[in-house]
Amino acid sequence: MVKKIFAQTYLWLLLLLLYSPIVIIIVYSFTESKVLGNWTGFSLGLYKSLFVNTENHSLIKALINTVTIALFASTVSTVLGSLAAIGLYDMKSRWRKIISMINSIPILNGDIIIGISLFLLFVSLGITQGYITVVLAHITFCTPYVVLCVLPRLKQMNQNTYEAALDLGATPLQALWKVIIPEIRPGMISGFILSLTLSIDDFAVTVFTIGNQGLETLSTYIYADARKGGLTPELRPLTTIIFLMVLVLLVIINFRIKSVKKKD
């Protein structure tokens, strides 16, 4: 009994320590004080000024950039990653192992390495850095995750499924569209959501590929803001909103994984 209480206390204490910074920001997003830690009464004023105040337009712009970049990058990564996974699945075992390993290098590699190497690549190719380079960079580090999400679905698939479709008169393209894609769709969706969160979250790669044309994403905006001295108070409601969005995505992913497991 005592042991159980101990274990429970430990767990909750740990969770509290982990989440207290976020909890504090969420709590203080409902007050108008300039400085964090100073409670000046409940107010939704910061939420209002975040969206209404012209001062904060660059912040909202950064938010829009972040979301559109994430959507573009995730969509392209999902297509590329799924096709790559299908190709990988069809390979001879030796090659599959080699390519799988190459696929997981960007995942294990530090973001900073990807960032620097892409920066150097774009510079050496003489590409002006901006929106497109950020999207390309995000596609680069999201695609391997999609491959990892889709490959297990393919491995679970009955190995004769594709042949059965061909046998019934489907051309390879029809078989892909009518049989393979529906089979791997759950993996593709998981990969897409994972890519979204990774892309929204990213700072290291973005900062190296964003260029100096004045383009900002949330992460780079906040970083610049913090260096100017003190964070804009409106970041508190923004953080709250993003946190809740990510939380919702996470719940969806977990729910999907559970329902897939149940089915199998």
Binding site: N158, N160, A165, D167, L168
Partner: peptide, 30 residues
Amino acid sequence: TPPYMRPVNTVFQNYALFPHLNVYDNIAFG
């Protein structure tokens, strides 16, 4: 000749039904 052009159909040992389709749509596939 590729398999989809041959006048043959196969019954597989592991059935190889399409799990995302119901019985009707499986049979109607061809």
